[in-house]
């Protein structure tokens, strides 16, 4: 959800479908490498070493470490949201009606409580 708001802030046309595994990540610099890295880390995939190497070669070590931090903390944030049943913030709920419907996010199990 935050992707939509922050992308507006920098006037960049990011296709939200990329977050769901579809095309569009190429519109963000190193987007394909970032998505592959985040997927491999989250799934515990054997592809992680290769994904890390591709991202490092694209963005360098310092940016790789920042990407590692963000991907890692979101693996804690999702557990926090799911374990506590945190409701979606009202402003974000109102602003994302169409994109949630279009991407099928409303079908996630956690939507039952998060949507209130």
């Amino acid at each position: 959800m935050l992707l939509r708001a922050s992308s507006k802030a920098v006037a960049l046309q990011v296709q939200e479908e990329a977050t769901m595994g579809g095309d569009g990540s190429a519109l963000v610099e190193a987007g394909e490498e970032l998505v592959a890295f985040g997927e491999a880390l989250t799934l515990g995939s054997d592809e992680l070493d290769a994904a890390r190497a591709r991202l490092r070669s694209k963005v360098g070590e310092a940016t790789l470490i920042e990407a590692a931090a963000i991907a890692a903390i979101f693996n804690g944030l999702v557990r926090t949201a799911d374990a506590t049943g945190i409701p979606l913030d009202k402003s974000m709920q109102d602003a994302t009606v169409q994109v949630r419907e279009r991407l099928g996010i409303n079908d996630f199990a956690g939507a039952q409580n998060t949507l209130g």
């Binding site: 959800m1 935050l2 992707l3 922050s6 992308s7 920098v10 960049l12 990011v14 939200e16 990329a18 977050t19 769901m20 595994g21 990540s25 963000v28 610099e29 190193a30 987007g31 970032l34 998505v35 890295f37 985040g38 997927e39 880390l41 989250t42 799934l43 920042e66 990407a67 963000i70 991907a71 979101f74 693996n75 944030l77 999702v78 949201a81 799911d82 979606l88 996010i105 409303n106 996630f108 199990a109 956690g110 939507a111 998060t114 949507l115």
Partner: peptide
């Protein structure tokens, strides 16, 4: 945008609403 793309993809793979 890079950070949020990465974060959103991690959330999506976790199926976190």
């Amino acid at each position: 945008p890079q950070a949020e793309l990465l974060a959103a993809r991690v959330s999506s793979v976790n199926e976190c609403f």
